[in-house]
Nucleic acid binder design. Structure first.
Lengths: 232, 232
DNA sequence: CCAAAAGTGTTTATAGTACACCCATGG
DNA sequence: CCATGGGTGTACTATAAACACTTTTGG
């Protein structure tokens, strides 16, 4: 039964953490403090411990290496190529995460000299097969954001309709008509009107919204979750 | 680095194989020939070897335990609860698979006394956390069949429009208007008309169709894959 | 003054849905 | 003869998409 009698195997998690600055998507990378790939950039992650699940490991390593916590996380793929790690056999569970960039002050931890955001289309070379992980996460992001109301987790708690629209436009690589977009979003009843902002930049004070989790629970409770809450 | 110096860890795959008999969904289970859970039913699967990826392991164990080969397979979740296996720490990569029931003559292999199909709503108790795996796979199936044209893999190579409709109705737990369903399917241009069957059962000879992989590749080549090829 | 975003409705096009009659087959 | 599925078209409804002008704000 015991695989370890046959060959050494380790299990790790890696997190593709997305951030959004209003214009482009960003990825959170760490500069590796140890070999292999010492000094190069990689996704935050690390080896799973005896007493934790993959999810717990992902959260812990994120916290240790970047200071990021209380974040949206979901598994999206297992990378199990035989020689994806030069040291020994390591199978990685890859996670996709969404962060409010403003929520976090990045720290450098144990295994990471420093953590930093990079624009998605200006990424440095990354270690292992992390490039593939990022590409796959990016490919899955639109579908995930279509099927679950989680895009909000990339925005501040209160956001303008314009910010929400830019997010969906960036993620889906398209543009939407401003009025049609607002109408669709409002028709979901999943946005709570938070009144008018007192802050503006070269424009009128925008109306702010927040995601109404209660309304979402009411809509989905006891029923099948809507397959496309934002029909965008 | 080496996790195995700290604790014993094994990696396994388990496959939730769906079949369809025209009326209900079925799941392929094996009767376990070894402990733990000897004599009880479980999903086909087994421990990953040194020289194989998760996908290869899933295909191999399926072949060894059930005789099923050349099947549609995709990862859908990693189950990593600390005590999901009573023996030691085992993390499982769960796969969802679609089989043409008629294609396979089930065999019993190494680790499996016998393999057998069960109706989804008449499953026996299953080992480990396989019940959770089946439930999650069943939950994900509609979404997967909406976003990829893989439902065909549950039907014979040539199928009638009625068979296709029953499949989608069963998977999605709903009913469709016969004429609207046929119109939508035909409008995708992904069905090749194979002419009239010479076999019928208490009804007119139905027109048969097959999935036109070539047309699908043409539609998706160089472009983004359609997010909803069958808008059903 | 200017650039940037905000507010606001209507019309047209497309897609979805509902619906009924007669026919062919095997038992 | 009867149960089962097959073939076929139209009208209605709902949703999506296209589209322009004026206002507020900060620099």
């Amino acid at each position: 039964m015991d695989q370890n009698e046959n060959f050494p195997l380790a299990l790790a998690t890696d997190c593709v953490v997305f951030g959004f600055d209003g214009k482009t998507l960003h990825i959170l990378l760490i500069e590796r403090g140890n070999d292999p790939f010492k000094g190069s950039w990689s996704l935050p992650g690390g080896l799973m411990r005896k007493d934790e699940t993959a999810e717990q490991c992902a959260l812990r390593t994120l916290r240790e290496e970047t200071g990021v916590r209380e974040i949206y996380l979901e598994q999206f793929h297992v990378f199990s190529d035989v020689s994806r790690d030069p040291r020994q056999r390591v199978v990685a569970v890859a996670f996709l995460a969404l962060a409010r960039k403003s929520d976090f002050r990045l720290i450098a931890g144990d295994d990471a000299a420093r953590a930093s955001w990079f624009e998605l289309d200006e990424l440095p070379p990354v270690a292992f097969d992390h490039h593939d992980m990022i590409a796959l996460a990016r490919k899955k992001l639109p579908e995930i954001m279509r099927t679950k109301p989680i895009g909000f987790r990339l925005l501040d708690e209160k956001f303008s309709m314009n910010e929400l629209q830019r997010l969906y436009e960036t993620v889906n690589g398209t543009t939407y008509d401003r009025r049609n977009f607002a109408r669709k979003m409002s028709s979901t009843r999943l946005l709570r009107d938070e009144g008018v902002s007192r802050i503006a930049a070269h424009n009128r004070f925008p109306n702010l919204f927040s995601f109404d989790e209660e309304a979402y629970r009411e809509e989905t409770d006891g029923q099948i979750a809507p397959e496309n809450p934002f029909n965008i």
